[in-house]
Design a protein around this nucleic acid. Structure first.
Lengths: 245, 245
DNA sequence: ATCGTAACTGTCGGTAGTGACAGGTTTCGA
DNA sequence: TCGAAACCTGTCACTACCGACAGTTACGAT
């Protein structure tokens, strides 16, 4: 059994550090667990073919090239199961369920890669596909027990790493737009407007006159530099200035 | 420290059984960990107000009623953080970050509820908001250590329960069918409206009559189930149906 | 061949939003 | 104590929105 302390040290890092580089995360994972390879991918499923939003991995260039050249993504049962679900996908299970994927696993063997591993689907804010694939380095037959012991560690750490990556994406986007500060009331009336309420209704809800609601909305429009309430709400929602329910 | 065996027994159930009812999952969680209350929610963020796709919880009816009656969802910092992220949200941290949410926590205290807990965001196939809130039952000051020890267990079990719910949810198919897709023109006029253009301006831009612009907007409002252009734009921006430059 | 869907247009009448006019109180830091 | 900023209110005139009425045309699928 892996040292518990190593896990908790890694957990502290993942919880407290704002940005953990993939390279560092992979190194820490490998020193904490018996891991052969890791692959983190964030794929745009709308684009034709394989459009990687992000791809970090520890596999050899040869292995990745073989995978893509052979078009294994088309038969990869792990990928298919990952795409459709929430549960961790065990490679062995996927292999059994889809015998037609044998060429993929044969190729993995040929390249000296084991087939013990698990892929964790990760939540994405938009319609993308993200996952962390974990390729274990354990003796024959030990994988089931190993997986059972560490699945919870993998699931939590994968989520935290994924969060770190996404938060860093957002940070870049948010820093581009200097957020003008709206007052509390301005935020409130914007929120109710986004919910489809009229000036009169908002005035009633907030216990102020309709005229005052208009006053706040006018100020909000001016601050956001827009010409209509609708445009103001569009900006506010996009900049996350108001919560929409 | 909680018995490790109990966790692994629960893990076996969650991994091997096709459907685990919320009631049973909650009972198992409570017998395995020191948990006061659990709340699992799957919320349709497209609808106006609070549309629960699913809601299972062990809180008292009074507590839930208070929460909704007081409109605490509007100030709940946990909800806001859950919505925007992947990381587990610690209630204490959320409380510190958002002092304006004090009424919520005061109310919780008044109702005899502790404020030690964590909420785990869960992946959803569409743009819904799902999470498992875990309200711990631990002695004062023990929460941080308890959380640290069990976060990985919670994260994995929450994901597996969520997967079980989604896999057995035939309503997902229905909602995807019911989720009406906007036509090209509807998307276009929504986009221009979000940019602050009037009907007349959009008509000129697109080379169609003002009346036709209104026609598309009316259809878009109906499909999005909203009452105003502003609300429609708020929904569309949030759902990523239109891009706002 | 009919049905559904998308794209398109006109008119009427009521309601809601918008700008510009002109005020007010309270609170908090310089 | 002064000023800035948030909060609040009233009226007038104009424009934009929005629902309900009633249509046409084009295209692809059962």
């Amino acid at each position: 059994m892996t040292d518990q302390r190593a896990f908790f040290d890694l957990l502290d890092i993942m919880e407290n550090e704002k940005l953990v580089e993939a390279k560092r995360f992979f190194a820490l994972m490998r020193s904490t667990f018996s891991i052969a390879n890791l692959l983190y991918a964030d794929i745009d499923v709308l684009a034709t073919g394989f459009a990687f939003h992000r791809l970090h991995h520890t596999f050899s260039g040869c292995a990745i090239r073989t995978y893509l050249d052979e078009g294994f993504q088309r038969i990869d049962p792990v990928l298919r199961l990952t795409m459709g679900g929430i549960r961790p996908v065990d490679w062995a299970t996927a292999r059994e369920l889809h015998p037609e994927s044998e060429p993929l696993f044969s190729a993995a063997m040929r390249l000296g890669l084991g087939v013990d591993g698990v892929t964790l689907p990760l939540a994405t804010p938009t319609r993308r596909l993200a996952f962390l694939a974990i390729h274990a380095d354990v003796a024959a037959g030990e994988w089931p027990a190993y997986r059972r012991n560490h699945l919870r560690d993998f699931q939590l750490l994968a989520n935290l790493f994924h969060a770190s990556v996404l938060e860093n994406d957002n940070r870049i986007e948010l820093s581009q737009h200097a957020a003008k500060t709206l007052t509390h009331r301005e935020t409130e009336v914007l929120g109710w407007t986004a919910a489809g309420k009229s000036y009169w209704e908002i005035g009633t809800i907030l216990g102020i006159s309709e005229r005052t609601v208009r006053f706040f909305m006018t100020n909000a429009r001016r601050k956001l530099n827009v010409v209509s309430n609708t445009q103001a709400v569009a900006q506010a929602v996009r900049r996350d200035l108001i919560q929409t329910f």
